[in-house]
């Protein structure tokens, strides 16, 4: 997976990585590591893992945290007033798509990333129906494309809904990679 993604990151702009549930934690770290090697400034959109354990996991993998900025959509569900962090924006809930979109714009303006990592669309699927998710992905892909950065989305590989999501997004995104 890393080899195909690494090669494609040079020429293509938008990606979906479909990951088996059992491998998800390990693969999402590998992806972050790949992006760390490839880019100088990465915006990590996290809807699944609280920020402190996420940073700890990334540091444990030897990832350079100075290259990362976080848009965190999960920590406030556990800690209503998280400590201020100059390298993070916190949004109240993972399904607050308006605030998420605004946070992405602010990140472009203030951090100037060359790549976004969206972890994960499967979390959004708990809260929103397929049409809303597709529209949202379309909207942020257009925004990020116009800005000139790349974006890597993740989702789980199993399930009817996920299969439909992957089919629909393959029409919008440059490349879909299925992890075996």
């Amino acid at each position: 997976m890393n080899a195909s993604l690494n090669d494609a990151l040079g020429s293509k702009k938008t990606f979906l990585i479909a990951v088996p549930t059992q491998k998800y934690p390990e693969v999402s770290l590998d992806l972050a590591s790949t992006l760390d090697h490839k880019f100088s400034r990465i915006a990590y959109i996290s809807l699944n893992k609280l920020i402190t354990p996420l940073k700890r996991s990334l540091q444990g993998k030897g990832i350079n945290m100075n290259k990362f900025f976080f848009i965190d959509g999960i920590t406030k569900t556990a800690i209503p007033n998280p400590p201020e962090d100059p390298n993070s924006i916190f949004i109240p809930e993972p399904n607050d798509l308006t605030k998420l979109s605004i946070a992405i714009t602010k990140t472009m303006q203030n951090f100037d990333p060359d790549c976004f990592f969206f972890d994960s669309l499967s979390t959004l699927m708990v809260y929103e129906d397929m049409n809303i998710i597709i529209q949202f992905v379309h909207s942020i892909v257009n925004k990020i494309n116009a800005y000139g950065a790349k974006i890597v989305f993740t989702c789980l590989a199993e399930g009817e809904k996920e299969a439909q999501l992957i089919r629909d997004l393959s029409l919008i995104l440059d490349m879909v990679i299925r992890v075996e």
Binding site: L50, P53, A78, S120, S122, V126
Partner: peptide, 21 residues
């Protein structure tokens, strides 16, 4: 207790919530 929140979790994220703070 604080107002409950609905969360979606995968794998080891559950433990993160339980030991937050």
């Amino acid at each position: 207790f604080q107002q409950p929140n609905v969360i979606s979790v995968l794998g080891d994220s559950i433990a993160d919530f339980m030991i937050s703070q």
